[in-house]
Amino acid sequence: MKIKKLDKAAFGKWVNSCIENQRVYGVQAKEDRFVFAPLVSAKDLRLDHDVTILPPKKYFLPPQETLLKFDRKEGFESVFDDEPFVLFGVHPYDMVAISQTDKLFAENHYDTHYFKRRQKATIVASDVQNASKDVFAGCMGTATVNDGFDILITKIDSYYLVDIRTKKGRALAKTIKDAEDADDMSLKLRKLVWADNTELLQKHKLHVRPEVLPRVLDRSYEHPVWEENAQRCYSCGSCNLVCPTCYCFDVRDDVEWNLQKGRRYRVWDGCLLAEFAAVAGGHNFRRNRADRYRHRYYRKGKYVPEKIGEVACVGCGRCITACTAKIANPVEVYNKLVDEGK
């Protein structure tokens, strides 16, 4: 493990050298909010962002992704995207979400399309400098992160600590100049940042430890909150769309103008959308809004944890911000179940 200490100028030079050498995406301002987008200059990189509109999931599971191309006579052929890229500014909670998605795409059936891209990605994580208005990563245990990334950046006063962890990280860090090794003092200060972030990233406070949620849900299937909140649900799927741990998808075909060739692609889908569980012939196995609404909370709090051993909500708070009906706050929902069960 190697930790470097860079001042602002050295840091900017390093980021620009990364941009010169490969495809780099980084967090940038978009009006008064933030997005991951192609980075052309270090000066556009905003590591002081609170949260991005969409999670970095879009680079591993793109909103639309070609899986196969076909020729109606010849049949299908796999299409893989394995061009290397660097992702700058992934917050700890988003890093945890990426690591969870890795597990889900590897279990039982290995998804080569996902992993070709994932293995070529170098992830530069970044400790949170400013809390977003709805973040609750602190109580989900995801305000800080200890693995999954290749490099972790922590801003302390006027300099950056660059913690290089993996082979890919070392390759990316090769162009770092004018850096010294991190001293004990700055490492101590980094620990303080982590302790502070765990406290600060709790704009909503879960009343139990996240590990308890599967047991809370065990006794909450018939709770009135599902029906009450779902009555205001537009089934718009915004909560699915912005969620870093949602990974459901639909698969569709696209034909070229010649009607011979085309592609099969996957596209994000959402379990809140009305037709999600409908089959050909018209039967919809999850017709009721409340059933769809409840399904999402059970997936995050019970079903996925049963598969990978972690609660599949990382506390980014994006669903809370995105929901027009103001019913998507997981902390409010889970606390209601917790408190009434006491």
């Binding site: 889900l104 795409f105 279990e107 039982n108 059936h109 998804d111 990974y247 459901c248 998808f249 639909d250 698969v251 996957r266 889908d269 379990c271 999600f276 569980a277 409908a278 089959v279 039967h283 196995f285 399904h295 059970y298 997936r299 019970k302 079903y303 049963e306």
Partner: peptide
């Protein structure tokens, strides 16, 4: 049981019955 088994490999989520994937 019938459900919308879209991917067949337990990823896409469409065939889920609570925690169970019908395709798997």
């Amino acid at each position: 049981l019938e459900r919308r088994m879209k991917c067949g490999v337990g990823k896409c989520g469409h065939c889920q019955i609570n925690n169970i994937y019908v395709c798997q």
